[in-house]
C-alpha cells in the first residue's frame, strides 16, 4: 500500500508533496511505487485538478471524497475555503480515515499560513510541518 500526497496552491502550483507507504500490518512506511509510477504520480494528481474545479462548485463541503481514478489508483481531494487543494493518491477505499487525515492537515496548514514569514502559495519547506504530516500519515493510514 503506497500513498502520494500533494498540496496544490491557488495557482495550480505544488506547495508540498509526500510519498509514503502504509504503516499498518507491519509495514515501515516506505512507499512501494515502481519507478514508472513514481514519475507518473504528479501527472495523475494534476490531471485531477480539472475535475476538482468542476466538482467544487456543486457542493460546499471541503472533503470531496474520491473524485478520480487511474488504473486501480484512487484520487481523493479536499479543498480548503481558501482554495488550496489537498490530493491523495491511494489504492483502497478508506473514506473516513482520509477525511480525518485531511482535516488534520488543514489545521497544520493554517498554522503554517499564520506565520508572518509565510506567503500564500509559497512551498512549505518547514521541517516541523514535514514531520507532523508524517506523524499524521502514521496515525491514520
Amino acid at each position: 500500500m503506497s500513498y502520494y500526497l500533494a498540496m496544490i496552491g491557488t495557482q495550480d502550483n505544488p506547495i508540498y508533496e509526500l510519498e509514503f507507504g502504509s504503516f499498518r500490518q507491519g509495514n515501515d512506511g516506505t512507499s512501494k511505487f515502481n519507478p514508472e509510477m513514481k514519475e507518473l504520480n504528479p501527472f495523475i494528481l494534476h490531471a485531477a485538478l480539472d475535475i476538482i474545479e468542476d466538482v467544487q462548485w456543486e457542493t460546499n463541503t471541503l472533503y470531496l471524497k474520491a473524485i478520480d481514478n487511474f488504473y486501480g489508483h484512487l484520487i481523493s481531494a479536499y479543498v480548503t475555503p481558501g482554495n488550496v487543494k489537498f490530493l491523495l493518491l491511494h489504492e483502497t477505499k478508506n473514506e473516513e480515515a482520509i477525511r480525518h487525515f485531511f482535516t488534520d492537515i488543514n489545521d497544520l496548514y493554517v498554522k503554517v499560513l499564520l506565520s508572518p514569514f509565510y506567503n500564500a502559495n509559497d512551498p512549505i519547506i518547514s521541517p516541523s510541518f514535514d514531520v507532523k504530516v508524517k506523524t499524521l500519515a502514521k496515525k491514520y493510514l
Binding site: Y4, L18, D28, G29, T30, P123, I124, I125, P127, K134
Partner: peptide, 22 residues
C-alpha cells in the same frame, strides 16, 4: 523538510531522526 527543487525525494522516508523530531 520538503525541498521544492528536489520534490518527493527530499522528504521520502521516516528515519530515526524524524521520529525524534516528531
Amino acid at each position: 523538510g520538503y525541498n521544492p527543487a528536489v520534490g518527493v525525494l527530499s522528504n521520502g522516508l521516516l528515519t530515526t531522526t524524524d521520529v525524534q523530531h516528531a
